[in-house]
């Protein structure tokens, strides 16, 4: 193999090692809900979906979310919801939450955790999505 090709091969190996090393830094830390909510800099609660209100769907909704080192939400999964419409509304709202950047020893870390919401319809028939008592 001629020298230029050998050098290019070396360069490619180095590039791959960098990519692998970068992959190693994408560490995920599991944090409890209090920690997740403490880190949130922008929180949006969804409007209660009209269809769910008519069906009188209410109860607890729990989502698992993950955000990256910059505080941007990268995934939201509904673990439990009174119905899929509420689950969808909460997912869309949580996708717009932002968080304070997180790092360990200067390396950005992804944070994963759960968020709980309560979907209630009051005596006047008005639906609301609320945070748990301790976070209101």
């Amino acid at each position: 193999m001629s020298r230029p090709y050998l050098s290019l091969l070396l360069l490619l190996i180095c590039f791959l090692s960098c990519v692998l090393a970068a992959g190693q830094t994408a560490k995920v830390v599991d944090v409890d809900e209090a920690g997740i909510r403490r880190s949130a800099s922008k929180k949006i609660l969804p409007a209660f979906p009209e269809g769910s209100r008519k069906r009188r769907s209410q109860g607890v909704a729990v989502v698992r979310l993950q955000y990256d080192g910059n505080g941007t939400v990268v995934s939201v999964d509904v673990l439990e919801a009174p119905d899929s419409e509420i689950g969808g509304a909460i997912t869309n709202a949580v996708r717009n939450w932002t968080f304070k950047p997180s790092s360990i020893r200067g390396e950005p870390v992804n944070i994963r955790g759960k968020l709980t919401f309560y979907c209630v319809i009051d005596s006047k028939g008005i639906g609301r999505v609320q945070n748990p008592k301790q976070f209101r």
């Binding site: 360069l11 190996i13 180095c14 830094t25």
Partner: peptide, 22 residues
């Protein structure tokens, strides 16, 4: 190219070690 390769390897190893330590 070889100099760049050495530099990138060093950088890669350093980042990998930091990640491992973390």
């Amino acid at each position: 190219i070889i100099t760049l390769a050495i530099l990138l390897t060093g950088l890669g190893v350093r980042r990998y070690r930091v990640a491992q330590l973390t």
